[in-house]
């Protein structure tokens, strides 16, 4: 637990930008831990001279923050306009099936978490998925199934 507090402190202190806010501090902590632990909310409150509830209001506002330890792999499926037009919907269904999930979320065994992203910024390669932040373009349900199968094997 001491180690966790130390990692959080280092992440908070390591911010280099000119303006340090609750949001920037939360991002720094999430970059370090991959999620916002309860301790993180408390330490960020102390660091930014606010209260846990203030910090919680910010943290819960943005869907980017997660409050449980991350899974082994992160799968993201883009459903932005470009991807949608070239078949994001069947892709999403295939991915959900391959992940054995019924919607966005974490697998219970912690091996993988799935998120739908409104745009991964690679429209030229639509439809796109990202596995552990590596973009993969021109996906079909079959290729996606195979890649995810590889993660779970």
């Amino acid at each position: 637990m001491e180690g966790l507090a130390q990692r959080i402190s280092q992440a908070m202190l390591g911010q280099e930008q000119a303006t340090i806010t609750i949001l920037s501090t939360l991002l720094a902590v999430q970059d370090e831990l991959g999620y916002l632990a309860k301790e993180a909310i408390e330490l960020v409150a102390g660091f930014t001279d606010s209260t846990i509830n203030d910090v919680w209001a910010v943290a819960s506002f943005y869907p980017n923050f997660r409050f449980e330890p991350p899974c082994l792999h992160q799968v993201e499926v883009c459903w932005g306009a470009s991807c949608h037009l070239v078949g994001a919907m069947p892709l999403m269904e295939a991915v959900m099936e391959a992940c054995e999930l019924e919607s966005e979320g974490d697998r219970e065994d912690g091996r993988l978490s799935l998120r739908f992203n409104t745009c991964l910024g690679a429209c030229a390669h639509a439809p796109v998925i990202a596995i552990d932040h590596h973009l993969m373009g021109r996906q079909t349900p079959e290729t996606a199934r195979e890649r995810i199968g590889g993660l779970l094997r």
Binding site: S50, T51, I52, N53, D54, W56, A57, S60, F61, Y62
Partner: peptide
């Protein structure tokens, strides 16, 4: 600051 807005 015992309560806050949550989510959005």
């Amino acid at each position: 600051d015992a309560i806050c807005f949550t989510d959005r």
